Simulated scan of single mutants.
Amino acid sequence: MAAWTTDDIPPQQGRTVVVTGANSGLGLATTRALVDAGARVLMAVRDVEAGGRVAAELGGAVTVGRLDLADLTSVREFAAGVDHPVDVLVNNAGLMGIPKARTADGFEMQLGVNYLGHFALTGLLLDRITDRVVTLSSGLHRLGRIRLDDLNYDSGRYERWTAYGQSKLACLMFAYELEYRFTGSGSRLRSMAAHPGYAATNLQSRTETVADAVMGVLNKVIAQSGEDGALPTLHAATAPDLPGGMYIGPGGPGEMWGAPVPVGSSAASHDRAVRRRLWDLSEDLTGVPYPV
């Protein structure tokens, strides 16, 4: 079977996609490919001025909306402004390996942006989504452990990479649990997860440590492009017959690069008891109850 590429994206005319973090990195590559395929894309971005410049360059049916995933008020305002059906929601935006910080609502920043903000956004948009939700995880979800007793590092030592791993494990568990609930409620909606492998983006330049320089070198030597890194997301978002609950990543060595294929995930990601407790805790923290 030939490797899946953007040439395999079905025509997207008449379809609407919301992409978070759409003005740079993987989000921009995802948005560009969807627009080229004919989709209407709502770019959900923190900086609407920068997003507007990108939208003007892209052409096509592109609109821009302000979304700050580190502020639940902004998440609610964005969701309230979406007054039309959304075929696909792509939960793409994220932070990686940053120093300890807090969101406007007091959440640990990586968990708040990567996971809790998207959990709230998905729940608030769910009555307008008509096809599927795609949530970005990472191969580094395997570093994570869901700290149900201290999810936001309110006590104890903060370690940025285990915090990142927790946030991406939470994203993956959310995608699986959402699909479980869709199926159990008889919904026709689908929930997918994807990860980009090692893709060269600006995500690797925010740790404020020597790791930024190291990853900058690795980006040039071993990383695949942002366009290739976006392929798993695009496959999860557009493949018409893809079953819900799939996790799509690069098929090459170590899932670092290569064409998108279904991939496996850690045993922890399939722990239904923890997934259920994380879900309940997420509803409590965000104040967003789900109808499924």
Rank of each mutant, 00 (worst) to 15 (best):
S205F: 06
G258V: 03
M215W: 13
R277T: 15
M1T: 13
L148N: 09
T135W: 04
G245C: 09
R272G: 13
P243I: 05
E283N: 10
A101V: 03
G165K: 00
H84E: 15
P232L: 12
S137G: 09
V261H: 04
A163G: 03
I248H: 00
P85Q: 09
M43S: 03
G117A: 05
L95D: 00
P85F: 04
A50C: 08
P85S: 09
T63I: 03
D68P: 00
R46K: 13
A55H: 00
V210Q: 13
S266D: 01
G52H: 03
I222H: 10
G287V: 06
R160A: 04
S137F: 02
L26P: 01
G252Q: 12
G156S: 06
G252N: 11
M173W: 12
T20W: 04
E77G: 11
L278I: 05
T63S: 14
A37S: 13
D71F: 04
A56S: 14
E255A: 06
I9G: 02
N114K: 07
L234N: 03
V261T: 13
A80F: 08
L136K: 02
H118C: 05
A259T: 04
V82R: 05
A199H: 03
L242E: 11
D87H: 12
P289Y: 14
G123F: 05
F119C: 06
R190W: 04
P11R: 08
D150V: 04
Y164F: 13
E108I: 02
L218F: 15
V48L: 10
S191C: 13
I248Q: 00
V17S: 03
G14S: 09
V88L: 08
T16Q: 06
P250A: 12
G59A: 10
E208M: 14
E159F: 07
A120R: 01
R32H: 11
L126H: 03
G52Q: 03
M192W: 02
V82N: 05
S167D: 14
P11K: 06
A93H: 02
D271S: 09
R53T: 10
T5V: 07
V86M: 09
E159D: 14
G244T: 06
Y158H: 11
D87Y: 08
Y115C: 02
G287P: 04
M96F: 14
G25D: 08
A50T: 07
V64Y: 04
R145D: 14
G112R: 01
N202M: 11
N202S: 15
F78G: 02
D149Y: 09
L234T: 02
D150Y: 06
P253Y: 06
Y180L: 13
D131C: 05
P260N: 07
A50P: 01
D271H: 09
G144W: 00
V217R: 15
L136F: 02
L26K: 00
D154P: 00
G229K: 00
G252T: 10
L116G: 02
F119D: 00
D8N: 15
Y290M: 12
I248D: 00
P240S: 08
A29P: 01
G251C: 06
M256D: 14
T73V: 14
P85W: 09
M215L: 15
E49N: 10
S191D: 14
G38S: 10
S265V: 01
L26V: 05
L124E: 10
V48D: 12
I129Q: 00
K168T: 11
K168H: 14
D131A: 07
A170I: 10
K220N: 11
D280S: 13
W161L: 15
L169N: 02
H195I: 10
R181T: 05
